[in-house]
Design a binder for these strands. Structure first.
Lengths: 347, 347
DNA sequence: AGCGCTCGCGCAAACGCTTGCGCATCCTTG
DNA sequence: CAAGGATGCGCAAGCGTTTGCGCGAGCGCT
């Protein structure tokens, strides 16, 4: 069932078949009909890869994210999926496992498949990394979430100011020892949120104390361990800023294990929101990056670049929104809270 | 940077280049070296699609899931990703939005890209659906989670017995009015879990009462609405079986809004586990399907089918595990519970 | 009737790779 | 030293499309 078969069945040439399929030159109505029927009859399905070979375009975009199980990224992926599919592109998704080698392999595979462009939440920007490869092969690329290099189009949340705001919030509540659970070292988001942490401290004239800082590897279990250790230290924090959603799970577990009550014993606020933030008690105060917007913007940047590969790269920062609930120790007024109606009531 | 360029640079023919790349016939060590160098020098990257055209194999498998934001499916996807990538396949992922039309389009796109096989969590099995298309074009396919047709290889959790077990558990606790929040009508999982619900009732000699049953569309917000309505009915249930993870979120919100305490006012147990089941109070009793195993098995089934396209289709059922926590109204012993250590302590 | 247009379509050359076939060259052996 | 067998490689025919070029038929005009 190739185009040749269809052509034979319709008594025309392959070029005519191609033209009716792509609507790329005028064909007599009668002929078009018979071709359409022949397609129907033979059950022909277009071979996109043969087409790609000659047109040098696959209408496919490659997507590389660290972990497909992180709700933050799945929301981003979802937005990207929706946006690309309305532009009639298909997504090629690969999981980089937050490992530079794996990531490079993924990017290679994607490029080998001649994706038209790539969106990637980069794990590393070291030389010899996926990013270097992409630059070397001048693949149209946009970075998402982790803003690793101004040489690419990129979109991510603002990290520094919002994290500082979280710290300042705690300080205003009277906390003097504000701890932080930081993410995987090397990620730009980790660096920026850490910088925000220190910025917040400085603004409130609180000393930076390395003893209040732990590293949670951006994941739940390492974060649990880290917070566990943190709480065992001589002079533990009275408030905790957690740098992402997954680590928040770990932090909550560690706090419970240690018998600490939130927010009475330890105040808690996290960067990135979670679906169940309003289901636990106390409800979680978070700083929520606009996940969907992030994905949408990434696609838009990519489309712009595909349209004009020569334009100079843009960096877009999107503002997170502060979702003020109770784990910080406040009991914010319900009215005007950005909570959905479902979450307005206290359990 | 095509193979021809490399050949020229190395002073050999394209066939030799191809053979050293694919290691598909003996090449003098010296020649191989110079080809390898030429590849390095020219920055050549293999064109997978050109190769696919001639070998008629893309080493790509297509994956269609309803919603990429549902943690159940992302775990499945993750397992599939891991498993396929170790077999050096790449994944083409599309979101069907749980919409038959969208699904059919997705499947068409995937087939047009000549994926070697497909894994799909089908939305519909109606004639004219994606499944019909796949059968008609004899695309190697395996169904995952939703077991829609014995004509395909398929793997899903056992739904009926485990759901019945949940009902029986409540009955043993003395509940007489056990309600259910069912999923999207039309899904096989919905049907099976409903059947399990009725089976459980029958076994405990409890009457089936349509007034205890609501439909939550497999999603959080509709489920919240549904449970809201359910609780407003004259004689509301004292226990609730929720048919999936997302709807559990909705149910919890509705219960809180109605001022019902779990498990004192209403017992709760859900089919499918959630990450934060141990973080809320009371901790959630769930029936957890083996998500990773589901994904892994799907890939294995597909690999078998690719190896031997003629074998007759197999259906695999995997047993969920009962995770006995507290929302059912019990205070199960901690020892021997399948909970991770992190979750053993009560807040 | 002849000219030039328009209209509709077919021919065949790519696209970048794989692979069966066959030709040198060199080594082994009787 | 001739013959046969390895060994190492090139040639060219595809794979299923797209697309520039060009040709024939039909039409309106003078």
């Amino acid at each position: 069932m190739t185009m040749a078969d269809v052509a034979r069945a319709a008594g025309v040439s392959v070029s005519t078949v191609s033209h009716v399929i792509n609507d790329t030159r005028v064909v007599r109505e009668q002929t078009r009909e018979s071709v359409l029927q022949a397609i129907e009859r033979t059950g022909y399905t277009h071979n996109t890869i043969a087409r790609a070979l000659v047109t040098a375009s696959t209408r496919t975009i490659g997507l590389t994210i660290p972990v497909v199980t992180n709700p933050f990224f799945t929301d981003v992926v979802h937005a990207i999926e929706t946006e690309t599919s309305t532009a009639s592109y298909t997504l090629l998704l690969v999981d980089s496992s937050d490992d530079p080698d794996h990531e490079l392999r993924a990017v290679r595979a994607l490029h080998g498949r001649r994706v038209d462009g790539m969106i990637i939440a980069p794990t590393s920007s070291a030389p010899g990394s996926a990013l270097a490869y992409l630059a070397a092969n001048s693949v149209p690329t946009v970075l998402v979430d982790r803003l690793a290099s101004e040489d690419f189009d990129q979109v991510g949340p603002d990290n520094e100011e919002p994290t500082a705001a979280l710290v300042q919030h705690f300080a205003e509540l009277g906390h003097r020892r504000i701890g932080m659970v930081a993410g995987l070292p090397g990620l730009t988001t980790t660096k920026e949120r850490l910088r925000g942490y220190r910025l917040g401290l400085a603004r409130c004239e609180l000393p930076y104390d390395a003893g209040l800082l732990v590293q949670g590897a951006s994941q739940a279990e390492p974060a649990r361990q880290a917070v566990h250790d943190l709480l065992a230290r001589p002079n533990p924090p009275s408030a905790l800023v957690v740098a992402n959603n997954l680590m928040t799970i770990g932090a909550l577990r560690a706090l419970r294990e240690a018998g600490k009550r939130v927010p009475d014993d330890v105040g808690l606020a996290s960067f990135d929101d979670v679906e169940w933030a309003d289901l636990i008690s106390p409800r979680l105060t978070t700083m929520a990056p606009p996940r969907l917007e992030l994905g949408r913007t990434a696609v838009q940047l990519l489309m712009c670049r595909l349209a004009d590969p020569t334009r100079s790269p843009r960096t877009v920062r999107l503002e997170p929104t502060f979702i003020h609930r109770e784990s910080c120790g406040c009991n914010p007024t319900r009215a005007g809270s950005p909570e959905p109606p479902a979450a307005r009531e206290k359990p």
